[in-house]
Nucleic acid binder design. Structure first.
Length: 693
RNA sequence: GCCACCGUAGCUCAGUGGUAGAGCACACCCUUGGUAAGGGUGAGGUCACGGGUUCAAGUCCCGUCGGUGGCUCCA
């Protein structure tokens, strides 16, 4: 006689086996009608799930009013919507074979193997959507039917879909004791799909849905396997929430760094220059320079030494480091010495031979550097090092070149030439933990100063049963422990990811999301046992014998390109005063005040501010609008009254009104504080009276 | 690299087989205006590039280049 315990602690007893639907009905008809599914002893189940023993149960219902939607409710909606979409596709394209259709973060997708010659394009979406709408309108029940493994496999073989058969075999391997199908309607009569479930009670619960995009995918994520078509969609309990979601996507696109970057003239990627190669225009260059100065200051404090190294080096260097030819596919092809090139031409050397000779080392060439570390290592080993010298910390804003696949490139977030705020630390085993901590401190300072709060910390560790790693397991143990301990000091949640370590050592990565939700790695701290070995690095210990140093690679920004791309989206182009390409714009009310405006402008300029004067023929309103759209932090409007009083009338970005007039010197001082302390609010404080200047 | 879609003025976009358009931006003129677009005139295009089909191609077909979203990859 099952006793069901509800989330509020109340209990209900039933005479025989029941389902969540029965429990809901027992509580009330409204709930029974609204329920989408349930959690029984923590497991997400459908309303038709049989409960035979005592259980904790909570019912999953659509959100009320403006409440956020329960993740379980979204999961059910989207899983079921994926089925409805699949049915629509199979109606529209006979012979389309379904592969795999899970809910994902923002919706769901279904991977489909289309028959030869068929394709789905965005033009097909309206038709597919109207087919889906009909299925949803019919409010057909999702009904589960089960077969034994043998009968189920037989059915799948009869139906002839190798994909579904593969899914079933995988499920059996994972321990399934039967196979289940979900029909939208009557089993063996209406459309159905092999599926573990659970699903909504009926299609009518899908209140709002939309097919979002179509893309290619490959079976089992293997590019050499079958090419599949992946249809993405999303679903919500109601149309209002769908509309809101679409609106948010629209808003997010306005934050896109490619859109803002163009509007504010921050950078340009020119096809004549090359894919993934960034031109930093004057405004963007200011942001970059300010960030470099900022981190440069912290580096000095932490005892780093600045170095500079070339963009290109002999192939042999990268053979020694292992970067060439191991990562050859993601490098620009090597450059061959002109003399050697002439010789090769005389020999009628083919491209294939040339490539072979470069790979084998019969011919030396030069490589655009994919990494800075080999050069920093050569600086380290350029003199005899004592344990007293360690740690040695060599820093460089080093530009590296990687031939990323063309389909991967995007704005500034994935490029082919980028500048890392790179450094390599050479230290003893004993120093490792402190050095890692120092690196994390840098990342924290950066994130805190810039107000970056939404980020993930990932600690990449060894895969316990893999042997692909270099270095002494005891050292690994210690390094991993050092990484965990250092991550712990951050005071934020972090996740340990086994198998995500580099082959040469464990690492700590900082991951953020862009405007459309994609994840990108920014800062990274990596321990390396491999390169010290390859380059035979050593230092003389207190015991007067040579020892191998440990290396740390670290880049708190990651790369200037990706970091600033992200930062543009983080601030939606509205950089804080210290970073803003233009900090202040002075607008004379009319020509009569132009001379005073100019003197204000000149004073600000002498004080080191980035300022401009707009004395154009547009009306004041128009000039304010133009300056506001440029996201300039402060607009100073000056007219005859200001000229008389030696004041400026201040408008701060984001506040759509005149804050009032203050003496120029007071404004200057407040801006100085914002810039030098890399904070904001000092100017506004002039008007709230919190800080009298 | 793979799949789908896209490429028209500096930017955002309209134009689907028959004489290349709009708004913003730009230049000049008028306007001198106290807080988010005053008015006028003008300049600006090998419709990404190369081939093909057609009496006729921005429009249809093929290829190349570039972009976008995914997939895969990411030292």
């Amino acid at each position: 006689m099952p006793i069901i315990t509800l989330p509020d602690g109340s209990q209900r007893e039933f005479k025989s086996a029941i389902t969540p639907a029965d429990v809901a009905a027992d509580i009330g008809p409204g709930l029974a009608k609204a329920a989408l599914g349930a959690r029984v002893n923590g497991e997400l189940v459908g309303l038709d799930h049989k409960i035979e023993a005592d259980a904790d149960m909570s019912l999953i219902t659509p959100p009320r009013g403006d409440d956020p939607c329960d993740p379980d409710a979204l999961w059910l909606l989207r899983h079921s919507a994926a089925h409805v979409m699949a049915e629509a596709v199979q109606q529209s394209i006979p012979g389309a074979m379904l592969v795999y259709g899970p809910p994902v973060e923002e919706g769901f997708y279904y991977d489909i193997a289309l028959p030869e010659g068929a394709s789905i394009s965005t033009d097909d979406f309206p038709d597919l959507e109207s087919r889906m709408a009909k299925i949803i309108e019919a409010d057909r029940p999702f009904t589960r039917s089960e077969l034994s493994i043998d009968d189920g496999l037989e059915r799948l073989k009869r139906e002839g879909s190798k994909y579904k058969l593969d899914n079933a075999e995988r499920a059996i391997e994972a321990g399934a004791d039967g196979l289940s199908w979900y029909a939208t309607g009557e089993p063996n009569q209406d459309w159905d799909d092999l599926c573990k479930g659970p699903h909504l009670p009926s299609t009518g619960k899908i209140g709002g849905f939309k097919i979002m995009s179509v893309a290619a995918s490959s079976w089992h994520g293997d590019v050499d396997s079958d090419r599949l078509t992946r249809l993405y969609g999303t679903a919500f309990p109601d149309r209002k929430r769908l509309a809101k979601h679409l609106e948010q996507l629209e808003e997010a696109r306005k934050r896109d760094h490619r859109v803002i970057g163009r509007k504010l003239g921050l950078f340009k990627i020119d096809e004549m220059v090359g894919q993934g190669l960034v031109l930093w225009t004057p405004a963007g260059a200011i942001v970059r320079q300010e960030l470099q100065d900022f981190i440069g200051h912290e580096l000095k404090r932490q005892g780093y030494e600045q170095v500079f190294t070339p963009h290109i080096a002999k192939l042999d260097l990268f053979r020694t480091s292992g970067h060439f030819p191991y990562y050859q596919d993601s490098q620009y092809p090597p450059v061959v010495d002109p003399e050697a090139m002439r010789q090769l031409v005389n020999e009628n050397c083919t491209c294939g031979e040339l490539s072979n000779r470069l790979r084998e080392g019969d011919l030396d060439g030069y490589l655009l550097k994919p990494m800075n570390c080999p050069m920093h290592i050569r600086i380290f080993s350029s003199e005899q090092r004592s344990y007293r010298d360690l740690p040695v910390r060599l820093a460089e804003f080093g530009t590296v070149y990687r031939y990323e696949q063309s389909g991967e490139l995007g704005g500034m977030l994935r490029v082919r030439g980028f500048t890392q705020d790179d450094a390599h630390l050479f230290c003893t085993e004993e120093q490792l933990q402190d050095e890692i901590a120092g690196c994390l401190e840098l990342v924290q300072i950066i994130f805190k100063t810039l107000g970056i709060e939404a980020f993930d910390v990932r600690v990449g560790l060894r895969d316990p049963d893999a042997s692909k790693y270099v270095g002494d397991p005891a050292h690994w143990e210690r390094a991993e422990e050092a990484c965990r301990a250092a991550a712990e000091t951050l005071g934020v949640d972090w996740v340990a990811e086994e198998g995500e370590a580099a082959f040469y050592g464990p690492k700590i990565d900082f991951v953020v999301r862009d405007a459309i939700g994609r994840k990108w790695q920014l800062g990274t701290v990596q321990v390396d046992y491999n390169l010290p070995e390859r380059f035979d690095l050593n230092y003389v210990g207190s015991d007067n014998t040579p020892h191998r140093p440990v290396m740390i690679h670290r880049a708190p920004f990651g790369s200037m390109e990706r970091f600033i791309g992200f930062l543009i989206e983080h601030f939606a182009g509205a950089f804080p005063t210290w970073l803003a390409p233009e900090q202040i714009r002075v607008l004379p009310v009319s020509e009569k005040s132009e001379a005073y405006a100019r003197s204000v402008h000149d004073d600000l300029l002498s004080a080191g501010r980035r300022v401009s004067l707009d004395a154009g023929s547009d009306r004041l309103q128009a000039r304010i609008r133009i300056a506001a759209e440029q996201k300039i932090p402060y607009i100073l409007v000056v007219g005859p009254r200001d000229a008389e009083a030696g004041s400026v009338s201040v408008r701060a970005r984001g506040i759509e009104r005149d804050l009032g007039a203050v003496p120029l010197q007071a404004f200057l001082e407040a801006v100085r504080v914002e810039v030098e302390e890399r904070t904001s609010g000092a100017v506004e404080a002039l008007f709230t009276g919190e800080t009298a200047v």
